[in-house]
Design a protein around this nucleic acid. Structure first.
Lengths: 348, 348
DNA sequence: ATTAGCACTCGCCAAGATAGAGTGCTAATA
DNA sequence: TATTAGCACTCTATCTTGGCGAGTGCTAAT
């Protein structure tokens, strides 16, 4: 905002130092480590100004300064130069392990650990939202006795399966016929259309396949809802490394929060609206009651549509520059991998 | 072993009290809380004896007694009466939430949380070993471009899917034909037999479906191996409740250990040989370097064959009586549910 | 506007004091 | 011989105290 050049430099120096060391930064330390060409007394004045403006604070009277959430915000908005030394980080990322999960689920787990390892925070990934997948195929397989396995396949390779009981009089051949019929009727339709069609057909007909239709309906729902609700958390123990959580109460709260995946899901999903990386600092995040935590979130996609959210959660005092890079990199990586594997769009 | 009745009672009283309170038990406390008909001085003598025999120990000279691992072992082997007040526990369990996961994976996650909630420990479940599943059906679905989704179904309803690229010249009709051919050839065979058959066929033929066969082979392998390696951990934060882990270092070690699911898998799998609940106290477990932890493990199955392991991991000072019941109950519950849903055996 | 100097504040840490819990031993007792 | 009462002793946990060091904020000089 209205900071002059010198103030900016001091603020940056304080935050950088604090991020690196974790302990409050005093005027003398600053004078020693940086060359501002002024004395410690002047720095004290500057820091007092910055404190008055709300960017810094004091744990207690005779301690050094630490950044406030507002200070971090300013730091991230104005002081981080993403261009700077991004080469180092890029190089570092090159050496990162590769992802090679065979199926979607495995890939997600791997990627969440990947995020965690590189960022030293907990990595979180929300599974891609499948709202634009189209119907591709359905299969009914008779198992033992009354059991039938329904396999529902979407155009982007998501497979949903479900076990149900049906009348024994329906034979595998009948099932195959019905499956072919559904394929015929529903191919290339979006999941929403599929459900609409099914509802209509169920009204018209009064047939033996009623139950199967019903279950197909539910399967299409499940693909959209349940898959969409999956949250993968990797490397949560990374967070225990930072001294911020060397407190038993905080740890407990943290892990409780991580176990409530649904809340995390909502948190991440609501956090991101547009493309690009967003940073939420400490109290800025209304949905996450965890104190002293920041989130760096981004999107990944396949094709042109946004399909998923990913990010890291760590202490407010985190290496933002690096973490932002890591999240960005991972988002692009996932986008690329998903683009290759689960190519979206209708199959024509 | 060679403990007389009074010694047994004292040992039991000490361990019960220690489990309940968490702090060392002194002779006066014992005299107040129980009625042994002797004075505290006598109790001191008895406790000194028990210490000499290795069942109890001292944190320091002027503290009360706490059980050793050997003490716990004796407690579990000889002093716990499973019959006793099992009614209370049974009743308590009746009020437990029900499990209703739709697919296997969801059920496992739910069950692990179930274990954790009822035992106040971390719940761990190793997914059922599918070694005896038989081939049921294979399906190839063309997606966009070169992509083909392979869906492999076993007789007990496990679905494994995999995305591959193949030559565009192979049409969906061809795939259907090949699928029908494989179904014909492989139906009712065990997975081991399936692989054997495929290997032979691949030798004989030099056909366009080579790649598909190869992938089918790998899918059958994956069903056996990957599914088998899945470990579900629920409610790990439960463990943070106990004061034993109110130590940052221990917490870290604990969560690091939980993140290495593969190690946990081996640990649990090797721990259980036969039917029934087993208890591993502290240092008794060679694979788990975690200090101060005990495990209570059991089996669940579907039909007559052992298929999976489940258990809880908690502090050595845990409510063994209750936890053993919970593990037993959960094992039976899972066995029942799996019996209903994923009925095993060939489909005739 | 900057700087040097100085009094002051506060957290940290080690040392000492104290209280409390519990033991082990000894001598008395039934 | 087994049990008990009594007592000295040990060890921990907690509280207090005082010194140290880091760092600030203010004032007066430049």
């Amino acid at each position: 905002m209205d900071l002059d050049d010198r103030n900016k430099k001091v603020l940056q120096a304080v935050i950088d130092s604090y991020i690196a060391s974790g302990s409050p930064i005093g005027s003398t330390v600053l004078v020693k480590r940086f060359d501002f060409g002024v004395s410690s007394a002047t720095l004290r004045n500057i820091m007092a100004d910055l404190e008055e403006m709300g960017y810094l604070t004091h744990p207690h009277t005779s301690a050094g300064r630490i950044p406030t959430d507002l200070g971090y915000r300013y730091y991230i908005d104005s002081l981080i130069s993403v261009e700077n030394d991004s080469d180092d980080i890029e190089e570092h990322l090159q050496q990162a392990p590769q992802l090679h999960g065979d199926d979607l689920q495995e890939l997600m787990e791997e990627a969440s650990r990947f995020l965690a390892t590189l960022s030293h925070c907990a990595g979180v990934i929300v599974a891609p939202s499948e709202s634009e997948a189209a119907y591709r195929h359905i299969e009914f397989v008779r198992l033992r006795g009354r059991q039938v396995l329904i396999i529902f396949v979407t155009s982007n390779g998501i497979v949903q399966n479900k076990l149900i009981d049906i009348d024994e009089s329906i034979r595998q051949q009948d099932l195959n016929g019905f499956s072919a019929y559904l394929d015929e009727e529903l191919e290339h339709r979006s999941l929403a259309e599929v459900r609409q069609q099914l509802t209509e057909k169920m009204k018209e007909e009064k047939l033996v396949f009623m139950q199967l239709m019903n279950e197909t309906y539910r399967a299409s729902q499940d693909v959209q809802e349940r898959e969409n609700e999956k949250v993968y958390i990797g490397g949560a123990s990374q967070m225990l490394e930072s001294p911020e959580f060397a407190n038993v109460e905080k740890m407990r709260a943290l892990f409780k929060a991580f176990e409530d995946k649904y809340k995390l899901l909502k948190l991440l999903d609501r956090s991101v609206s547009a493309q690009g990386i967003k940073v939420f600092i400490g109290s800025e995040n209304p949905y996450f009651e965890m104190q002293g935590c920041s989130m760096v979130v981004g999107n990944y996609n396949a094709g042109s549509n946004v399909v998923g959210t990913l990010g890291v959660i760590g202490p407010t005092r985190m290496q933002y520059k690096q973490v932002i890079h890591v999240v960005d990199y991972t988002a692009k990586l996932l986008t690329k991998l998903l683009g290759e594997r689960f190519q979206r769009g209708l199959d024509r």
